[in-house]
């Protein structure tokens, strides 16, 4: 590679340094080279000055041109307004709205796609959740309240307080067991299991049980 080419490439790197386009490690290398080489430092200074002068020139030109540019805006505005009614007459109804919608669609296509995907996902999750909930719903027939068993006067409640003998609680139900004394001598007592759901429903169930109750010496229930 010729010396001239090397200098040219080094000058391009110098330009990239001034433009803040160098990778950090290249930047460090170039800064070290500038520090060690006064000619390179002067080139960097000249490049910076060139950019400053050109930008100042552009700014100065713009300031001077401002009145003319303002006048041009008024001409543009008039031309656009003159065209607007013609466009309404010549365009099909809704053309402008369609154009605006087409533009909106172009710009926000990504947002729209994301929204649609999110909507479909939300609908799917909702449907799934709803189907899961239905499996837990007690059918109306089960919810219908059966006739509550009448606790006859012969009911004999076992226990010192006369309240339920056993009580069992689960997460959402509470069960109480009552014993109903037999109405005829020698018959077995009837167990009544009272299940109360903690929600609003109440489903009593009557289950005949073989008594295994403590008895006294005469074999009678205590």
């Amino acid at each position: 590679m010729s010396d001239e080419r090397l200098k040219g490439e080094r000058d391009e790197l110098l330009m990239a340094l001034i433009d803040r386009e160098l990778a950090p490690e290249q930047e460090l290398t170039m800064r070290a080279a500038i520090a060690a080489d006064p000619v390179l430092a002067r080139k960097a200074q000249a490049l910076t000055q060139l950019s400053e002068v050109m930008r100042a020139h552009q700014q100065r030109e713009l300031e001077e041109a401002q009145p003319a540019l303002d006048a041009i805006w008024h001409r543009i505005e008039r031309e656009l307004q003159r065209e607007a009614p013609r466009a309404v007459v010549s365009d099909a109804p809704g053309q402008r709205l369609r154009q605006a919608f087409a533009y909106w669609l172009t710009v926000y296509r990504g947002h729209l796609t994301t929204g649609l995907v999110a909507g479909v996902a939300a609908a799917a999750i909702t449907a799934f959740a709803m189907s899961g909930r239905q499996t837990q719903v007690v059918p109306p027939a089960e919810l219908a309240q059966p006739a509550l068993p009448t606790l006859t006067p012969q009911l004999r409640l076992v226990g010192a307080s006369g309240v339920d003998v056993e009580k069992t609680e689960f997460s959402n139900v509470e069960g109480s067991v009552y014993l109903q004394a037999p109405t005829t001598p020698g018959a077995s007592p009837t167990s009544v299991i009272w299940i109360v759901r903690h929600a609003t429903d109440c489903v009593p169930t009557t289950v005949p049980l073989t008594p295994t109750l403590p008895t006294n010496s005469n074999g009678e229930p205590i």
């Binding site: 001239e4 200098k7 040219g8 000058d11 000619v39 002067r42 080139k43 000249a46 490049l47």
Partner: peptide, 10 residues
């Protein structure tokens, strides 16, 4: 032809 930048200040 890879002419270097001039180290000249205005």
């Amino acid at each position: 032809s890879y002419e270097p930048l001039a180290p000249t200040i205005l």
